[in-house]
Design a protein around this nucleic acid. Structure first.
Lengths: 209, 209, 209, 209
DNA sequence: GATGAATGAGGTTTCATTCAT
DNA sequence: TATGAATGAAACCTCATTCAT
């Protein structure tokens, strides 16, 4: 049961509230499939049924289009994950809730997270710095819980950064292969990831809360 | 202690046995940093001090150059990981050895694995089919051990494919951030990953063997 | 002491009587600095704080905007110079008064004359013919005085057209470098040019009248 | 009678020693007629019978093409005018020789000087600074003679900069209208300009030497 | 009076590729 | 082996312009 809704990812004119949103979605879809450099604005224009020059009425450049995608995705991701991971409760409970939200988001907004995770290198100069800072701040939420949990004796691992990276990349994989019509339901997938990771770092063998 | 050696990744004329190898390495380095579509043959040519047209004496096209990288990387990866994961021993011991080798390879040949893991979408037609088949066959090594181990009661998880994917992507992350001069040594990193994952899927709480 | 006033060249909304005038001035300023082809209507629109499409309410096209500038400038120039150069008096006196007026105009309306002098090539078809005819008719005023003066024995030179061209281009230079806050006052500059040229063509060495 | 020869300006494949030279001439011709911004590389390519992309094999950008024209023109102009204007002799003799050379060059290389004189504003950043410095250094040759001549009592004018500017722009006009098949021969034109200017600034009424 | 949205042509530039030498 | 010269397609982006509102 979903407690969130950002709409479907399929770029369909009917679904998009306005042209800008429509372009945004088409760009996400194409860049997720072919990468930033592998996607041309001609492709995007064709997908939305506009002339290439019309894209520029909404986004000043291809780079800004990518930046818009990343900014929005990082913002929404953080807004979705921060409440559960920062809530009151044990470190284990908070980590569990954080991973679950992280996985849910990556499945639900898979194309956007795919682009955001894999095209940072396509950003130029300050744009890259900005998004990297957002990403580091975000993963810092998990890093803090892991470190605090270890100090409290709840978790055990030798390096918190390695553990955080392992978590981030492992879950990012969900965006790569998740299909809404797949074998496993989204809650099942989230449960599987959470259990695997929590057991991996837990000091005592117990179920995730 | 390393039991393998494919040479350094730094593209340095002196290190490369021949020009083809030199071009190969320069391409790996650039594509790892900027992606296939973000790397131009001009970049590669400049890196090796040749004219662009000279590249064509060694590789018939940019696409074939990428294909050569992926073929070689997949072949070497499999050759390095198959012996330990297929050796005699318990499922847990085999999985442990397999993960360790997998991680070592991803750290030691990080640029090549980076390209191979992230640029499959840049392959065209049959090339893509070929590499995807190699990749699936390779991850099948882990899938089999996980499933057999579960049947034997050694491992516990609800979906073997999800578990395999989690493992593959988690370890692929090593290639993204590993630095030879980093805080942790390579054996430590391998140990950390192995322990985390084995505990995550182990039926009974025990150390990796 | 100025006996004429067309207002300042600085495009400032407050100074312009209406929007059309405001656009006109902004266009003059920009085209003087960057040329016709180097100036975009977007530049003009930005300078006046309007949308690009709004420009079209006042001018039917970029070309017509340029044409408007040139027509007005040529009309005013002629209206300013013709009286003194056609007045009663000796050829030398008339030439002196003509040059003085010509220089004054080029200094006072420097941006407009700059555009008018240097962008004729940007005019298309009939527009070009029209302005060239105006320009030739205007320089004809000087040509006539020079030729009549030579027949009367006042001036000496071998080719009247060359002498006219030399005068026109020499004075046009004023529009290029004249600054109201510069070292020399406008009357001084006019005096300098007049004297230099009159002495250059005078049959007997005498001061300009 | 010409004592110099840089070849004709007409872009004719047969005349150009190599492709780069051929492109150079075509660009000069087009930019002289339409200005930098009014000339497209497509025009240039068409004029030389190449693809647009082939232009880039010889010049890294349109801007560099313009810069090449200006550098060469300024260099040749200086090399042609400096010897006579710096030679031994009276100030009047030196000025006379300088003007003559200046005019000859502007007639003989009229298209290049046209571009160089009128497209400085199309240069960007440092390129502009560089060419402006060259131009100022060049006109400084005349400025020095004028000032020294005035101190010696040979010339009379109130401002040396104004006098220099008047000379420069007056002669630049030659490049605008000179036609090899015109009414006046080149030596006649040079003589006319020299006499007009020398008489204009001379302290005592005498013929140019 | 002024704008927002769209266009279509065309701008400069880059790209992978070819081929005779 | 390697290059110099050229290509043709296509990249991103800008332009003047239109038109319904």
């Amino acid at each position: 049961m979903k407690s969130y809704d950002w709409g479907v990812q399929v770029a369909n004119r009917h679904d998009a509230k306005n042209t800008e949103e429509f372009i945004y979605r088409a760009a996400v879809e194409l860049m997720a499939a072919r990468g930033y450099h592998g996607t041309t604005l001609r492709d995007v224009a064709r997908a939305v049924g506009l002339q290439m020059s019309s894209i520029y009425y909404y986004f000043p450049s291809k780079q800004e289009l990518l930046l818009a995608i990343m900014r929005r995705t990082m913002r929404d991701l953080r807004a979705f994950v921060e409440p559960p991971i920062s809530a009151e409760g044990s470190f284990r409970a908070r980590l569990t809730a954080g991973i679950r939200a992280h996985v849910l988001f990556h499945a639900d907004r898979r194309l956007e997270t795919l682009v955001t995770d894999s095209e940072i290198r396509a950003l130029e100069g300050e744009n890259r710095d900005e998004i990297i800072a957002l990403r580091d701040a975000y993963s810092g939420l998990f890093l803090e819980v892991l470190e605090a949990g270890r100090r409290a004796g709840d978790f055990t691992f030798s390096d918190a950064h390695v553990a955080t990276n392992a978590l981030m990349t492992m879950c990012a994989g969900v965006a790569v292969w998740y299909q809404p019509e797949g074998r496993l339901s989204l809650p099942q997938i989230a449960e599987e990831f959470t259990r695997l990771y929590i057991r991996g770092v837990a000091a005592s063998p117990a179920q995730p809360e």
